[in-house]
Design a binder for these strands. Sequence first.
DNA 1: ACTGAAATGTCAAGGCC
DNA 2: GGCCTTGACATTTCAGT
Lengths: 152, 152
Amino acid sequence: MIFDAIDKKLLEYLQQDSKQTNKELSNKLNLSVTAVYERIKKLEKEGFVNKYVALVNKDQVDKSFVAFCHIKLIQHTQDYVVKFEKEVTNLNEVLECYHISGDYDYLLKVLVKDMVAFREFMVKKLTSINHIGSTHSMFVINEVKHTTAINF
Amino acid sequence: MIFDAIDKKLLEYLQQDSKQTNKELSNKLNLSVTAVYERIKKLEKEGFVNKYVALVNKDQVDKSFVAFCHIKLIQHTQDYVVKFEKEVTNLNEVLECYHISGDYDYLLKVLVKDMVAFREFMVKKLTSINHIGSTHSMFVINEVKHTTAINF
DNA sequence: ACTGAAATGTCAAGGCC
DNA sequence: GGCCTTGACATTTCAGT
C-alpha cells in the first residue's frame, strides 16, 4: 500500500496530539477534511496506529518512583519462561518487560509510589515468582527524556 | 481537590482508549454526558492528563530494533551533564533517557530499523557526543509487556 | 480527493439537588 | 459543588461526483 510523505506527517501530528480535529490537520497538511479523515482511517485499518491513549502524569497520581529491574532466571525451559512472563505481565507495577540479550534475561520498568512501595513490590510480588535466580535494580534519579513518538 | 473513585475509573478508561466518546464513558460510569465532560476538563486542567497521543506500531514503520544502552560519563561536572542530556535529548533514535543509580549514569531506550542502523547510531551519533566514558548495550529479543497505562 | 449534507459529538447556560 | 437537561454549534462520517 501507499505510505507517502503526507501519511508520515499525519502520523507525526497524531503522535504529538491525537485530539486535534481533522480540520486542524487538514490546514496543516493542505488537504480537505475528508481526505484527512480517509487517510487516518486507512492508517488505523492497516495497523499503523495501535491505539489512542491519554498519557497520565505519574506524579499527580502518587506514582513518582521509577525503577528498572534486571532479572535472571534459574533455568530457561519453555515452562519457566512462559510462566514467568505471564506472571510478570499480570503485575500492575510492571509497565514494561523486555526479554533482552546480555548478562540478565529480562529488563523490567517498575512504577510505584516510593522506595517503601518498591521494597514491598520486590519482596511480596516480584521475588515471590518462582524460578527467579537473581535481580539487580536501578533507580531513576531523573527522567531526562520520555516520548512515545517514533521519528521516521 | 477531589479525586474520587469515578475520576480514577475515568482515567483508567482514557488511558486505554482516549477516542471513546463522552457518551460511551457516561454509560460505563453511570453519569450524564456533561458530568463526564466536566470531570475530564477538570482532570486536564489539574494536570492529571499530560496529553493525548496516537501510539504507532513500530514494526509497521520499519523500526523493529529496540536496544537499551547504559552510559557512563567521564566526569560529572554540571557542564558535562547538562550538555550530554541536551545532546541525547535531540537524538531522534533515543525515545527515553533516564539518569539512574548504579554502575552506569544513564539508561537509554533506542529505537532503530535494525542492527546495522544501531551500529550506525552508536558510531556516528551516540559516541560522537563528548565526555562519554563507556557504554554497554542490551538488545531487546522480545517485548513481553509494554503499556503506557498507570494502575492506581 | 473534493463538495455537501446527515448523523453524531462537544460544550455552554441555567436550574436542581 | 457536582449533577442534570436543553440547545447551539462543531466535528465526524458518508454518498455522490
